[in-house]
Simulated assay, not measured.
Amino acid sequence: MIEIRKANERGRASFGWLKSLHTFSFGHYHDPKQMGFSALRVINDDRVTPGAGFAPHGHRDMEILTYVLQGRIAHRDSEGNVAHLPAGEFQLMSAGSGITHSEYNASDSEHLHFLQIWILPDVYGQSPGYQQKDFGQKPGLTLVASSDGAADSLVIKQKMKLYQLLLEPGETLHLDSDVNRRYYLHLIDGDLKIEGLSVDGPVSAEEIMHPGDGVRLGELTQLQLTAGEEPVRALLFDLP
């Protein structure tokens, strides 16, 4: 299975200070066919005007990943964590039994652009937690989050893995995949060709992926990702 979710098909929200694109149903955007994928529940592409942001609000029993693409987030939460999250860094907030937090554009002159991702946990009611890390710009796949913290990754409360993917123009990456797992790729920069191998033979996407596109992947034994004429940056989710 290779199913592309086009960027222009996402839900939209605009509140003046915030413009948001929703890969899956969120807020006032509801599509019964887009309620998430496996444990992946939300991918919001958010842009915030200078000095604006989200006032204190609460969450519980959700793993909330934030990846800053441009600008810097000022974070504060009810567990006493006060931090700035610059472009290129990942943040993981485990809401657990309940947490209140705020997040603002830390600049009075520059716009903020970030992805916020929600993962359904496989354990509930645990103590809230906060993690933050820069994983650099290593080519290929870099493990960002896992259930066991392998390779110094962020520890997430779900049997999944999140990878940062970086490819040079024209570069091809071959991956072995598990037919019993599901995968989701969100493309941030560049163009990407998706091909795979199932038990029934070769499969490929009918279209080239462009920035903001996502793709559901399943029942594949191998995966081949080929960058176009520009560098590729993407997030790859390995899901139960």
Results as ranks from 00 to 15, higher is better:
78 S>K: 05
231 P>G: 10
47 R>Y: 11
53 G>H: 08
125 G>P: 00
8 N>D: 15
19 K>S: 13
16 G>W: 08
25 S>T: 11
142 T>L: 04
14 S>N: 15
175 L>A: 09
190 G>K: 10
45 D>E: 15
199 V>R: 10
117 I>P: 02
18 L>K: 10
38 S>Y: 07
91 Q>G: 01
2 I>G: 01
179 V>S: 04
66 T>Y: 08
138 K>Q: 14
144 V>D: 10
143 L>I: 10
53 G>P: 03
96 G>H: 00
1 M>R: 12
41 R>V: 13
53 G>F: 05
152 D>F: 01
73 I>P: 06
194 I>T: 08
32 P>F: 00
134 D>Q: 02
226 T>E: 07
50 P>Y: 13
12 R>I: 11
217 L>A: 05
50 P>R: 06
134 D>K: 03
169 P>T: 07
210 H>D: 00
91 Q>K: 02
58 G>H: 13
131 Q>R: 02
192 L>T: 09
69 L>D: 07
89 E>M: 05
30 H>L: 10
99 I>W: 06
217 L>E: 06
224 Q>K: 15
208 I>Y: 02
40 L>W: 07
40 L>M: 06
55 A>M: 15
162 L>T: 12
95 A>Q: 01
17 W>D: 11
75 H>V: 11
46 D>R: 14
142 T>A: 04
148 D>T: 15
210 H>Y: 08
207 E>N: 09
214 G>T: 10
151 A>C: 04
80 G>S: 08
119 I>T: 06
227 A>Q: 11
214 G>C: 05
15 F>L: 15
104 Y>E: 02
76 R>E: 13
83 A>I: 11
72 R>S: 08
175 L>F: 01
201 G>Q: 07
37 F>Y: 11
232 V>T: 04
71 G>H: 10
23 T>G: 12
59 H>V: 11
55 A>E: 14
23 T>Y: 04
47 R>N: 11
149 G>R: 09
193 K>P: 00
99 I>R: 00
71 G>I: 13
29 Y>G: 04
198 S>G: 06
91 Q>R: 09
39 A>H: 02
171 E>R: 13
61 D>R: 10
126 Q>L: 07
28 H>C: 01
47 R>L: 12
74 A>E: 15
84 H>I: 02
21 L>V: 02
109 S>H: 07
49 T>W: 01
19 K>V: 14
83 A>K: 15
184 Y>R: 03
56 P>F: 10
85 L>G: 01
49 T>F: 05
17 W>K: 04
37 F>S: 01
38 S>N: 06
33 K>R: 14
23 T>K: 08
178 D>I: 10
185 L>F: 08
66 T>R: 14
95 A>S: 02
69 L>F: 03
217 L>S: 07
57 H>E: 15
199 V>G: 06
187 L>F: 12
211 P>V: 12
162 L>K: 04
177 S>V: 11
158 Q>M: 09
26 F>K: 08
202 P>T: 09
214 G>P: 00
45 D>Y: 00
22 H>Q: 13
152 D>W: 00
182 R>H: 14
184 Y>N: 01
143 L>D: 07
98 G>T: 09
69 L>R: 14
143 L>A: 01
227 A>G: 12
157 K>Y: 00
146 S>L: 06
208 I>N: 09
197 L>C: 10
